[in-house]
Design a protein around this nucleic acid. Structure first.
Lengths: 343, 343
DNA sequence: CTGAAAGCGCTAACAC
DNA sequence: GTGTTAGCGCTTTCAG
């Protein structure tokens, strides 16, 4: 029960009959060769007393916290989202391999308003930060433009702000989705979009609509509905689309959550998927594989991107002058939710 | 770009023409009244130079890291799970209100084997730890029985180990589910369970089966199938149950994920829910509200439990002698997935 | 090959 | 009221 009193390097020095320096040298195996016997005496003492160097003291000395923060948006339980969750897993995996630990932060208004997002840097609590799910509404981001605090946006960027980021090519994603629908004979298609303050969503929409238009099948504004990034929203949006334009034969949903919702919404409205209406999603989350029908979607390398983002952040920390703009390619994952349109 | 060189308390002392102590006293507003003019001079200097006390140095001095770790099991992307996610959100909210930050750790074999779960304590990196999703297979937990490192299990416990925990009453949950089914006339019921190394699952099963047995409607072992804690597993388990025992009129799933899967599985097998087969879940996750039919389930106060767990951990940190065994009551949330059995 | 001593940035007895 | 000083636990010149 009692708080085992911490054993410090001083205790080891005493116990092994050597000096602080010697102990430190042995432990950090600085090549300044310590004689084998001395080394052994130190190591024995360490073992015997169960000594563990204080990470705090080391951090203070080295001016490295060994900590990275992940900032997630303030959504209802942002951590309970598969997309963010997979990114966080990836970041955690990469960070721990590099000897860093991961701190969680939520972009609560009170967190931001108090300037905490800067404080954690300035108080030398963290070495760098990864921001997930940012939008152009997040005005606090501009404070990072001077590159003075190592920060990187994950799978997003903000038009007009010079911020490091690693993301997927959502414009290509939109184009690929359009090409797949066109190749299957679909020309009357709808789009379940989401928030326009998310730059990658804007890219997806523009990639999609311009590819459709280029093929002579432009998309009417009325056939673009907001699905709020949620399943329910996707369901409602799909229902609305089909109401506005009953002869739609296919639709793209801006992410898989909305696509899964859209499938449910279409079914509820009495349409068969994909026989009556085809659905294509974007992201390729795990769940898409198991819905009915299995979801055809544009694959984004979420996990790899997360790892890459973390790796790049560590590079920035190592060399503050470097700047990163990394764009990952996307691809098509064909399953069963898109059918050939014969009419 | 250049790394702004950190301004320290010493710089403030110099700039304000006072001593280190004075500055420290002013900043920590220790009541030793510093004269108003001096105080103002210090504050001005702080403002002007943009001084931020180093959290590292403070931590070293105070021997408090201000950090809590959350240890999640090594599942495929554990962070991408609504249940863990909600718990993490709750913990984060409570911790940040108390001025603590939250570190993420995953119970990878290599993390545990390296003894990292103890190291982060012994190297004074964290002040306490919260463990999610533990099972009796996690033998490393016994190292915490001596109470020497502040740790607490969240919504679980391990039979035979004396560990702090905050959890729900899953035995009662099983009983409540049984009572609700019985009250609706169901007597031929099945159970989609999950891993028996999870103590709360064992409790749920025992609460459920003994209540059914007590009512003269005992559950045959053949009517208990493993749903693996997943949607797919739940679907497969429900299909299997209905194959083994075609006249089942209801089933309990050990959590809502499996319940949602079970509904899909039953539908796929041609049964209507709840007209042919009723389904009751356990946990009350957000998604249950939106599935078809909306899920009747045993409500567990996940978020509140997470907050409470965190609060209790902080108490333990404050007073290492205290021991916590907190059990939260559960209740019934009636929606549409359980119907009256008329036959 | 090893030890003494300074310093990382901050706090808090203890003087003046 | 304010300053001096001694740590917190560690790393790292710089002498011996």
């Amino acid at each position: 029960m009692a708080k085992r009193k911490a054993v410090s390097i001083k205790d080891i020095a005493k116990a092994s009959g050597s000096s602080l320096t010697t102990v430190s040298l042995v432990l950090n195996s600085r090549d300044r060769r310590i004689s084998q016997p001395t080394r052994q005496r130190v190591l024995d003492a360490v073992e015997r007393l169960g000594y563990r160097p204080s990470r705090l003291a080391q951090a203070l000395q080295s001016q490295r916290a060994g900590l990275l923060a992940v900032l997630v948006p303030e959504l209802r339980h942002a951590f309970a989202d598969v997309y963010f969750g997979e990114l966080i897993s990836a970041i955690h995996d990469e960070a721990s391999e590099a000897g860093y630990k991961v701190l969680l932060e939520v972009a609560h208004p009170r967190f931001i308003d108090a300037g905490q997002h800067l404080e954690i840097f300035d108080r030398r609590f963290i070495d760098g930060m990864l921001c997930l799910g940012v939008t152009s509404f997040n005005s606090y981001l501009s404070a990072f433009e001077d590159g003075t605090r190592p920060m990187l946006l994950v799978n997003n960027y903000v038009d007009g702000l010079e911020l490091n980021h690693v993301r997927c090519d959502y414009r290509a994603a939109g184009r690929i989705a359009a090409e797949h629908l066109l190749a299957n004979g679909h020309r009357r298609v709808g789009l379940v979009r989401a928030a326009l303050e998310v730059q990658t969503m804007v890219d997806l929409i523009s990639g999609f609509t311009s590819a459709m238009a280029a093929a002579g099948a432009p998309i009417d504004q009325a056939n673009i509905v907001d699905g709020l990034y949620t399943e329910d929203g996707g369901a409602a949006a799909a229902a609305e689309l089909i109401r506005r334009q009953p002869d739609l034969t296919a639709l793209l949903a801006g992410n898989d959550k909305m696509a899964i919702g859209a499938i449910a919404g279409l079914k509820a409205a009495g349409r068969r998927v994909p026989d009556d209406v085809s659905v294509i999603g974007c992201d390729d989350i795990h769940q898409g594989e198991f819905c009915d029908p299995p979801l055809t979607t544009v694959h984004t390398p979420i996990y790899d991107m997360g790892r890459s983002a973390c790796r790049r952040l560590l590079e920035i920390i190592g060399s503050p002058t470097s700047t990163v703009r990394e764009v990952h390619p996307v691809s098509l994952t064909v399953r069963k939710s898109v059918a050939r349109q014969s009419s």
